[in-house]
Design a protein around this nucleic acid. Structure first.
Lengths: 338, 338
DNA sequence: CCCTTTCATAAAAACGTTTGCATATAATTA
DNA sequence: TAATTATATGCAAACGTTTTTATGAAAGGG
């Protein structure tokens, strides 16, 4: 494997000159740069990461932090697309992407300590966001570390750099879409309004209904299987109060699917009620009827986060790049086509 | 940050002695080792990865390779659990886990080249397996690289190191489970027998039926939404030929769910037909009725792969450790409880 | 034409380890 | 007691970069 010394020798210069030429230093003449470039080509040279890291006292590595809670991992079908996007961009910029994980928060933090201390890793991407996250707290405390959160940061929103969808707007757009389709009643189904995403979508839903001067029908359901009867009961009660053409907007596709299973237990004709979800997950395509949903482009969450975190060292970095909003798109399917 | 020189100075020895002491070299007296250990503690020392990598000409980094095809990523809900498991174990052993990805195979290979050449990364884990995979081919060609495949290697099975479930056995066990429950007809539904997993499960299914001297009923379905009517037709045809208590064993939970949507189009009472799937995905819990499925413990695929790839350098490495089979477990739910 | 500045390059030190070789001391043997 | 061998340690080079400092040549100014 060729080293910078080989390049230098072939180009007839010293290693220091070769190094500077490679970094396009203004100290080096165009002529010499050209010689060095040719030597590099000739030898198929590319610099060694370890040596660079050692000399620069910094690693060209981005740490990506997965949540420790096993459930959290299972729940989110997007992680992998996010990581894919992240790794694509980072790799393309010659950054390595190192995954940090663990079975508990403590273990995860211990692993992060290692990465920071021994690996000189200073830039991180959280692929989740949680209230009172001790892991985030830990990273925040470290000197010299920088991080980007994917999702809506649960605290210090103004001080943290994040990339997210605009869930408020998505809720608004979805609701308007239904209203403009002529549905007179739109129900918003959720499981837990303490969860940021569900809440944001709910606020958007409210805003749209306010603009149309229509009443809101929030419906809290349980996502526990055992509570099915209770859920059906809640749904039945609510349906008694409403009239006209009805649509149910569920906070995500899974809940939408859950509700579709509930119709049997209610005395309504499912084909008369429109359904809509969020996330455009695989489920939406296989459900019957196929489910209208809001695509949120998880891959772009990854690519945008990568762009942010990579540019963090460049001092040209602007504050208004601190938050990136990935757009969404309504994917219309059979569940709202009538 | 403390370096080995600081430790050496505090312990009153030279850096080389300190280094040897840390590696528990037999050249160093127990007394000196103890002094060094104390100094390490005192200074909270831990070695710098970049320096070690440079000196050792090898990186303590495991590359984990995600498939380039976007669909492949979306399809497999296990990736993230696998990576979680992998990262947990690797991090615990002071290995970094670097993700390699790309939008196309070419891009992915280019990124891998960088990791190998510039990053000194020589050990990889494929979190997927594919026939005629150019990426695998590329890694195989490299000198000095070692890799573990998660899933069943599609070629060179005897020469490659892999960790997988025993899908044949899983198919067998699932079928036996149904037969022992008293179902007289077991249908195996699949979408593509060219796919290794579906095929292996099918073979196990066949074996069980042979042992029971019962006829096999393979049923090929399309997973394209547009083919729903065709699927229903195929199912209806098949049902005409069979009798007694019937169970459908689908090659995975998604297909099982798909089939449940099909009952309406057939003239059968769904509550009379048992359903069973594989993978114990989230779907199995939310389906109605809840779906009996075979849990395959994806996290362990990751942890076992990590153990394999980490031990690959130790020359104690035995051939019979070359393949690791992660056990499965039938999770009984309502869809087969009658 | 000498002095100063600018420009282009080289030499050497540094980053934090590991390791081959040399060396010093203690223990053994003749 | 001198010669030999074990045992324990230090020195210095090496890994492949970057960067500070030094050096030489050309150019500009008076």
């Amino acid at each position: 494997m060729a080293t910078i010394k080989d390049v230098a020798k072939l180009a007839g210069v010293s290693p220091s000159t070769a190094s500077r030429a490679m970094h396009d230093s203004s100290l080096i003449s165009e002529e010499t740069k050209s010689k060095v470039r040719h030597a590099m080509q000739e030898l198929d040279y590319s610099p060694n990461f370890a040596a660079q890291n050692l000399a620069n006292q910094s690693s060209n590595t981005i740490g990506v932090i997965l949540p420790a809670r096993e459930e959290a991992v299972g729940e989110n079908p997007f992680f992998i697309q996010i990581i894919q996007g992240l790794a694509s961009i980072c790799n393309a910029h010659d950054y390595l992407v190192a995954v940090a994980s663990g079975q508990t928060d403590e273990e995860l933090i211990k692993n992060l300590e290692t990465m920071i201390k021994r690996g000189n890793i200073t830039r991180f991407v959280f692929v989740y966001s949680q209230v009172n996250d001790p892991v985030l707290e830990f990273i925040k405390q470290q000197k010299q570390t920088q991080y980007v959160v994917i999702g809506s940061p649960e605290s210090d929103r103004d001080q943290t750099c994040y990339v997210d969808n605009d869930n408020h707007l998505a809720g608004y757009d979805a609701t308007r879409y239904l209203l403009e389709k002529g549905f007179e009643t739109v129900i918003y189904a959720y499981t837990n309004l303490d969860e940021g995403v569900q809440n944001a979508r709910y606020l958007g839903y409210q805003q749209a209904l306010n603009e149309f001067k229509l009443p809101k029908f929030p419906l809290e359901l349980s996502n526990r299987v055992a509570d099915e009867a209770k859920n059906a009961q809640a749904l039945r009660e609510l349906l008694k109060k409403v009239s006209g053409r009805i649509a149910v907007l569920a906070c995500d596709d899974i809940l939408a699917l859950d509700i579709q299973y509930l119709w049997d237990l209610c005395e309504v004709d499912p084909s008369k009620i429109a359904m809509m979800g969020f996330n455009n997950s695989g489920l939406a395509k296989i459900a019957r009827p196929t489910l209208t949903s809001v695509e949120i482009f998880p891959r772009f969450l990854g690519t945008e986060a990568a762009a942010l975190v990579i540019n963090k060292d460049k001092d040209t970095f602007k504050l208004d790049l601190n938050r990136v909003i990935v757009p969404h798109k309504i994917i219309e399917r059979d569940s709202t086509r009538f």
